[in-house]
């Protein structure tokens, strides 16, 4: 097993953990955390392919990860603001109890 394979397997495990959490947890905050874990698994893949790829001097994977981190930060800010706004209406952040969209 080479290093690249090991990193890819760690990333796949991280993605699966995030997916399982996003699908099974009831708290909307933890669903968002699961999505963040999946995004991070993709970032780890980018870095691993950049490090072990044939043209690391192009910096493509590294730059992509920097942009991806910025997008994830914006996503977390808007997502958590949405959860707080929904909580103010529904008095819960349990995704299985929020069943109507009418305010």
């Amino acid at each position: 097993m080479t290093s690249l394979t090991a990193y890819l397997l760690v990333s796949a495990l991280l993605f699966s953990i995030g997916l399982a959490g996003a699908l099974t947890r009831r708290s909307a905050i933890l669903v968002l955390a699961g999505v963040e874990l999946m995004l991070n698994a993709a970032n780890l893949n980018f870095i691993a392919f950049w490090r072990f790829g044939p043209h690391p001097e192009a910096l493509t994977g590294l730059i992509f990860v920097v942009f991806s981190i910025a997008v994830a930060a914006a996503e977390a800010a808007v997502g958590l603001a949405l959860i707080v706004a929904v909580y103010r209406q529904a008095k819960t952040s349990d995704v299985s109890e929020i069943v109507e969209m009418k305010g």
Binding site: S3, T5, L8, W50
Partner: peptide, 30 residues
């Protein structure tokens, strides 16, 4: 579903020719 996803990704990684030794270079400058 998560386990299935991991199984598919792990199968794809193990089947691929990604990790052959010629590909692994020295630490890149960044």
């Amino acid at each position: 579903l998560a386990l299935g996803t991991f199984a598919v990704i792990a199968w794809a990684v193990s089947k691929s020719k990604l990790g052959h030794p010629g590909l692994i270079s020295a630490a890149p400058e960044a």
